[in-house]
Nucleic acid binder design. Structure first.
Lengths: 132, 132
DNA sequence: ATCTTTGCAAAACCTTTGCACTGCG
DNA sequence: CGCAGTGCAAAGGTTTTGCAAAGAT
């Protein structure tokens, strides 16, 4: 049976309250504000558990370590995660969700290929880094 | 001054003749057919050299180790690499180039964000794996 | 008291680096 | 020959795992 611990809560809360996608180290930093003794291994283990329970979604961006974010149920579609993409700021390295999606992507595949899904990542400067 | 070696030729040839994007291990396997004693470190070093010389292009797909491919000069645009994306086959794990690109991607960014570039990856089954 | 979860340290995995040797020019 | 390039082994960075101790129920 699953137990409630300060560590687990700290990890979950870090992911939920950030509003963006965090990698393991970022989650660790944030969760340590809550539980200073928190160990990185524990963060990885909690991430794995939460991911298996579909409490967090893994976000893979090209050339980057995996990030994790809280499931976004906005236009709730039968329990499915809302389809969205990500903006990667090359200034502060933070990753933000973006909600649109260009159409007609299936048409780009070579003839005979079958598209199951797609990932789109935008790179650039976030509002804060454009100003700076 | 730069020297010609069997190892360098084997690495370059593996990348050029494959017609797709290869990771370090794949390059190693292929190049070893040519030079069986080839060391993985040498492969990494040659990749780095070739990449610095713009002889190979690095391809990062979400959640995957970096791959490398020969530059595609098709619609040669003043020496620039032709802008393209990739199709990742979830069956055979191979990666293929795709040449279209959906428009209006900049419009997806949040207000105040500045888009510099983008990556698009399609996932699915390639023609061979659809048939199988 | 039981049994999951934790912290620590070691291992695993991929990539890079130090160093002496090979071999191209 | 001289020095770029190679092989090997060791080191780095990140994630995973083994194990004894801690702590939730």
């Amino acid at each position: 049976m699953e137990r409630q611990t300060r560590q687990k809560q700290a990890v979950m809360q870090a992911i939920e309250t950030s509003g963006r996608s965090l990698n393991a180290a970022e989650i660790w930093s944030l969760a340590q504000l809550e539980v200073p003794s928190l160990n990185l291994s524990t963060v990885y283990r909690q991430i794995k558990t939460l991911h298996d329970e579909a409490q967090v979604v893994r976000v893979d961006l090209p050339g980057q370590p995996p990030r994790y974010e809280a499931p976004c149920h906005a236009p709730r579609t039968r329990g499915h995660e809302h389809h969205h993409h990500h903006f990667h700021c090359t200034g502060c390295e933070q990753v933000f969700p973006i909600h649109g999606c260009p159409g007609g992507i299936e048409r780009l595949a070579p003839r005979g290929f079958q598209v199951q899904s797609h990932d789109l990542t935008l790179h650039g400067h976030c509002a804060a880094c454009v100003g700076a």
